[in-house]
Amino acid sequence: MGFKLLSKLLVYLTASIMAIASPLAFSVDSSGEYPTVSEIPVGEVRLYQIADGVWSHIATQSFDGAVYPSNGLIVRDGDELLLIDTAWGAKNTAALLAEIEKQIGLPVTRAVSTHFHDDRVGGVDVLRAAGVATYASPSTRRLAEVEGNEIPTHSLEGLSSSGDAVRFGPVELFYPGAAHSTDNLIVYVPSASVLYGGCAIYELSRTSAGNVADADLAEWPTSIERIQQHYPEAQFVIPGHGLPGGLDLLKHTTNVVKAHTNRSVVE
């Protein structure tokens, strides 16, 4: 069995187990497998329904001669939608809004960016022009300005110390501490036991640490421990890039980060 097929099978099995364990909360999309990078042309966006009122959005972007996937989250909030992270750029984010209108038909009224990198804030200006209120932590807003990236308009308070959590509509926002970046936030959907790890969490097929220019490698494993301790009931975990899975993604990420750190020390 090929690795790609095995990865998709694991996603399907995880979703099936969740649907059985929580039949009222989960209505997993039966329309197909989780979209992969090879299936999404740059400039297009796919939506994948995880649970009743919960979707991931998947886009792709060219970077350094390669094409990478990027995940975000959409959560229903009454007759409105909360968006977590842009679709990595203005063109993708405009396509995301169009796809949401086509498939869901509810307005996106608020959006949260989970850290300051372009795959999370690139497209904020498109959201703002569409009347979406954009939010991020003060740290993310400051770092985005320093980096020359787009800056969300509103500040999220109460997320300055490791372990801080605040309720934001249908989700809980959690600051686990520094990891992929010093400002990275985690998003949890309690009604569906869905954990969105953003770039602080890796997919299972990833074996290298990737972009760690703004990471705190020493603190990252401790931050992941905080996530595990705060959300032990999480059933569906979405990484910032690639295929979702279960809580095993947290341990896998820790292993990859520690291996990278150990290699760096040896070198």
Rank of each mutant, 00 (worst) to 15 (best):
T253C: 01
L5G: 09
L83D: 01
E233F: 12
T86G: 01
N255V: 12
Q49L: 10
E99H: 14
G198K: 03
F236L: 09
I227P: 02
E147P: 05
L247T: 14
K91I: 14
A87Q: 00
G158P: 05
V124G: 05
V54F: 04
E101D: 13
S16E: 08
V37E: 15
S161A: 13
L9R: 15
D79Q: 10
I17T: 12
S139L: 12
D29Q: 10
H260L: 08
L217Y: 09
A90F: 06
A66I: 12
R46G: 09
C199P: 03
G210L: 04
E80Y: 06
P69W: 14
S162E: 14
Y34Q: 08
E150C: 03
I84W: 00
L81P: 02
A215E: 07
T182E: 13
I224V: 11
D52M: 08
P221E: 10
T114P: 00
T14D: 11
L250I: 07
A179L: 00
A209Y: 06
L143K: 08
Q228T: 15
A165L: 15
S16C: 15
T222E: 12
E225L: 12
P35F: 08
M18T: 12
K258M: 13
Y188K: 01
Y202E: 04
N255K: 13
N71T: 05
K8V: 15
I74A: 04
T93N: 00
Y202Q: 08
G123H: 01
E80S: 09
G53Q: 10
G78W: 06
T182Q: 12
K102M: 12
P221M: 10
T261V: 14
A111C: 07
G177A: 03
E33A: 10
E267S: 07
G163A: 06
E225M: 12
T93K: 00
L47M: 09
T93E: 00
T134N: 01
Q235C: 06
P69N: 15
F26S: 14
L185Q: 01
S223K: 01
R226S: 06
H57M: 01
Y135V: 01
Y202C: 05
N92C: 01
Y12R: 10
H115W: 00
P23C: 13
H154I: 10
P221I: 12
L173E: 02
T109P: 05
A192Q: 13
G246C: 04
S181K: 02
F26E: 15
S62A: 10
K8Q: 08
E219H: 08
A133S: 12
V54W: 03
D183K: 00
C199V: 01
S160L: 12
A136T: 06
A21R: 15
S160K: 14
P170F: 01
A209M: 09
V237R: 02
S31T: 12
G148P: 03
A59K: 05
A111H: 05
T60E: 05
T86E: 00
L156E: 03
Y202K: 06
Y196M: 07
T222L: 13
D125H: 11
E233R: 13
G242W: 05
V37Y: 14
L10K: 14
I238A: 02
A179M: 06
G197Y: 03
G240F: 03
E33W: 10
N184L: 00
I84F: 12
H180V: 00
T14H: 15
A234V: 09
H117F: 00
A111I: 01
A51K: 07
G246K: 10
T14A: 08
Y12E: 12
M1T: 06
E44Y: 09
A259M: 11
I20V: 13
V194N: 03
Q228I: 11
T140K: 06
R120V: 02
A215V: 07
G78Q: 09
L13K: 15
S16I: 11
N149A: 12
V171F: 00
Y196D: 01
V124Y: 04
F116P: 00
E219F: 06
E172R: 02
N184A: 01
A19D: 15
L24T: 14
L156A: 02
G105D: 08
A94Q: 14
L10S: 15
H230E: 11
E145R: 14
F116L: 05
D29M: 11
V28Q: 10
P176S: 03
A129Q: 12
L96T: 00
V37G: 15
A215Y: 05
G72A: 01
D164F: 06
E80G: 09
P176Q: 02
L6E: 15
R141C: 06
A51C: 05
T93L: 00
A136L: 03
I151C: 03
D77A: 06
A90D: 15
T153F: 11
P23R: 12
S264W: 09
V132R: 01
H180N: 04
V266G: 13
S162M: 10
G246P: 06
G131S: 08
L6S: 15
L106I: 11
G53V: 07
H180C: 00
I227N: 07
N149D: 08
D85N: 03
K8E: 13
F63L: 15
L247M: 13
G246A: 08
A200M: 12
G246Q: 08
D248Y: 08
A200E: 03
S31A: 12
H180P: 01
G78T: 08
V189N: 02
S22W: 11
V37S: 15
F116A: 08
L159K: 00
Y175H: 07
A200C: 06
Q229R: 13
Y68D: 08
S62N: 12
E233A: 13
G169L: 04
R110P: 05
D119N: 05
D79K: 09
G198H: 03
V146N: 13
P239H: 02
L24R: 11
A165C: 06
R263L: 13
P190A: 10
V11A: 11
L13A: 14
F3A: 08
G158L: 06
L247P: 15
L24I: 15
I50C: 03
A59T: 12
R110N: 12
V67W: 14
G78R: 09
G105I: 00
S30C: 08
T140I: 04
R142S: 13
N92M: 00
S160D: 14
D79S: 10
V265E: 14
N149Y: 11
S162V: 10
L185A: 02
W55T: 02
H115N: 05
I17K: 15
K91R: 15
V45H: 04
S7L: 07
A87S: 05
L173V: 11
A15K: 13
E44R: 13
P221V: 13
V146E: 14
S27R: 13
T182C: 05
V171K: 01
S31Y: 11
A215P: 05
F116I: 05
S31W: 11
G123R: 04
L250S: 02
Y68M: 09
D79T: 09
V54E: 02
Y202P: 05
H57P: 03
D77S: 07
P35Y: 08
K251I: 12
D77T: 02
N184H: 02
G177I: 02
D29A: 12
S137P: 07
L195D: 00
W88E: 00
R206A: 15
S137K: 07
S137F: 01
G163N: 08
D118P: 09
L143T: 03
L250A: 02
N255D: 13
L249R: 02
K258I: 10
S30N: 12
M18N: 15
M18K: 15
I201H: 05
I151P: 01
N71Q: 05
S70P: 05
V124S: 09
N184T: 03
H230V: 10
L5H: 15
G89I: 00
D118T: 08
E39Y: 11
R120W: 01
T134L: 01
E219Q: 10
Q49G: 11
P107M: 07
E172N: 03
S161R: 14
D64A: 12
D183A: 01
A209E: 07
F63I: 15
G198P: 00
E147C: 08
N211F: 12
P138V: 09
S205V: 08
I58F: 08
V237N: 00
D52S: 11
S27T: 12
G53D: 14
L5F: 15
G43C: 04
F236G: 04
V132Q: 00
A19P: 14
I227Q: 05
G43I: 01
E101Y: 11
G89V: 01
E101W: 08
P239W: 01
V28C: 07
R76E: 10
S161G: 13
R167A: 12
T182W: 13
N255W: 10
G246F: 04
V42P: 14
A129W: 08
T36Y: 14
R263Q: 14
T261L: 13
D118E: 09
A179R: 04
I151W: 05
S155H: 10
G43P: 03
I224Y: 00
D29T: 10
I186K: 01
D64P: 07
H252D: 03
E101G: 11
